[in-house]
Design a protein around this nucleic acid. Structure first.
Lengths: 338, 338
DNA sequence: CTGAAAGCGCTTACAG
DNA sequence: CTGAAAGCGCTTACAG
């Protein structure tokens, strides 16, 4: 525990102290001593490891081994609270076999082939990619680390994915809005090119059409933060209303919060003057003014399922057809008059 | 760009293609070719690097070098939205000299010496530690990577720190509550042992006493999530009110959201029956019902300042006395009757 | 059961 | 200006 004052503790130092060889130390610390190292020596090595506070050097280990126990998560929107919940689920399912590292991507950008290449230099055991853009796989080089794409509709069959079945949630939302008498909806799209955003918008438009509702197709988009969405909405809300929209659906709850803030700024009543809904169902959506209707996309389950799927891929189970679909559902609240 | 189908691209492959040696490739890719490698060869190496898609292997590089360009961030509360904002600031200030990695700590635990040791195996250039517990440095071994502690009041002088000056914000909050006629306050403490939480509570109690207010000292604490705080508050609100409290201050905004949810469940009006305030001033606090009064602790500035401080430490500037204090201020809103 | 040795892919003196 | 060679700290056949 105490550990020496000096420098990095190496396997050689442990070996010397335990009166054995570096090879043996390696076997013991990697749990491969069973039947190959005597109990006495194993114990002596363990003691020396504790006394010196030895930790296997990652660089050397991964160089020798060709891989590591690292799982790297690439994500486009780290500051989004949704994202933190995803990591909780990943961690739960990953357990202690793997160490999770989040790689922070250049500001607001989408994870791309360059990021993968950069991350591959760490020789991770696997990669998790959250909300990739539709072109993500296009210039990806073969031979990279195994990966699982999360919330990546449209990638099924081309890669291992864990994706939401958005349809139940979106159908429930449209039915709910139709019942409340809305006929024209505005849509606030996320400015990052994640495939999931496109699918959310298109699915909403399609289902709305089935119910005889119309979604304004003005391509309005904003960054995924409250502030960015509030600024855009302050500008757009009057136009949306002039175009007949009585409800706004935002691509994410954080953006819907911005719509609420903008409505407040403009003195519009929600849902009286304009109804608002989002996607994700963040926990904070139950305490907004008014509480926010949202298509719930269970973040922790997404993380858990992705980690499990990666474990399967690492274990050699193929990565094709049987992508599990996680359920979505509607959390109807006051912002749409529920 | 295309890259070969085969295996990992090594410096040897680049050297062969460029008709030169591995040493020269190393110099070129590390930007040390100036005056040591002819322009012609430099260009040939660059071309080969591009054609093959070569990336320096981290493991091998860090093993040879003894260190990396990695900055690792240890944090106890990844799912908290506050935290994402901190990373934005860090990334901004870190620039491209360093790669930022977040190390995910075991569920809800505080970063400790073990985590540092585990992370040290990656040979990071430096470590950033958010909201450490008071004992964090106690069993830390010397000889580890340089580190900067963030939001770590009480560590000044013992380590490089970047910390908030909580006093202006807390003073403003107390003055605001006193003016509104409150005399007894309840406090909802965070359940993680971060030093900053203790300081927030003690400072509030001290300043409150100066104003003739009393803070209930019942040690109530909850996890840092809305749900955890809501459950605890649902239980405690009646007791707090019975003890004379007319306002609740929570250690973090996410927890204050939970108090709002609990008040709603219990049918209590905010601020009529009970006023509520938090710490952090998350962006969402402007759209809660009612909007939340909060001691603003600028997250991005914290991240920025910490990254700058780490850069200074890495450049050899000491890590002692001159810890900058970041300002806090009050964002007074409707939840306290503002 | 145990240890000497090769090799992982770099970087950095060092010799030319 | 350029390259051969040692060495970073491990892991893994391999020989004993």
């Amino acid at each position: 525990m105490a550990g020496p004052v000096g420098r990095r503790v190496t396997a050689a130092m442990v070996a010397r102290r335990a009166g054995t060889s570096v090879s043996t130390v390696s076997l013991v610390v990697n749990g491969k001593s069973r039947g190959r190292v005597s109990a006495v020596i194993t114990e002596r090595v363990r003691a020396a490891v504790d006394e010196l506070g030895y930790v296997v050097d990652h660089a050397a280990s991964s160089l020798a081994r060709g891989t590591t126990d690292l799982v790297v998560l690439l994500a486009p929107d780290l500051p989004n609270p949704y994202f933190g919940r995803v990591t909780t689920g990943i961690r739960e399912a990953l357990g202690s076999r793997h160490q999770l590292m989040l790689s922070v991507i250049e500001g607001g950008e989408q994870p791309g082939a360059d990021d993968v290449r950069r991350v591959a230099a760490f020789r991770p055991a696997g990669l998790l990619v959250h909300a990739p853009s539709p072109t993500f796989l296009d210039d990806l080089e073969p031979g990279g680390p195994p990966l699982v794409l999360m919330d990546a509709p449209g990638f099924e069959g081309r890669a291992a994915t864990v994706t939401f079945d958005l349809e139940p949630g979106v159908r429930a939302l449209v039915a709910h809005l139709a019942e409340a008498g809305h006929t024209v909806l505005a849509y606030l799209e996320g400015s990052t090119p994640s495939a999931t955003f496109t699918v959310r918008r298109e699915l909403l438009a399609r289902v709305a059409a089935e119910h005889g509702l119309r979604v304004l197709d003005d391509g309005t988009r904003a960054g995924l933060t409250l502030d960015a969405a509030a600024d855009v909405s302050t500008e757009e809300l009057p136009r949306w209303r002039a175009a007949g929209a009585t409800a706004v659906v935002a691509a994410a709850d954080t953006m819907a919060y911005g719509v609420l803030a903008a409505a407040h700024r403009l003195g519009l009543a929600v849902p009286g003057d304009i109804a608002v809904a989002g996607f994700d169902d963040l926990p904070y959506s139950q305490v907004t003014a008014p509480s926010l209707t949202s298509v719930a996309l269970p973040a922790e389950e997404l993380g858990r399922a992705a980690a499990q799927r990666l474990a399967a891929v690492l274990a050699g189970d193929g990565d094709g057809a049987d992508a599990p679909l996680l359920p979505s559902r509607l959390a109807a609240r006051a912002s749409t008059g529920a």
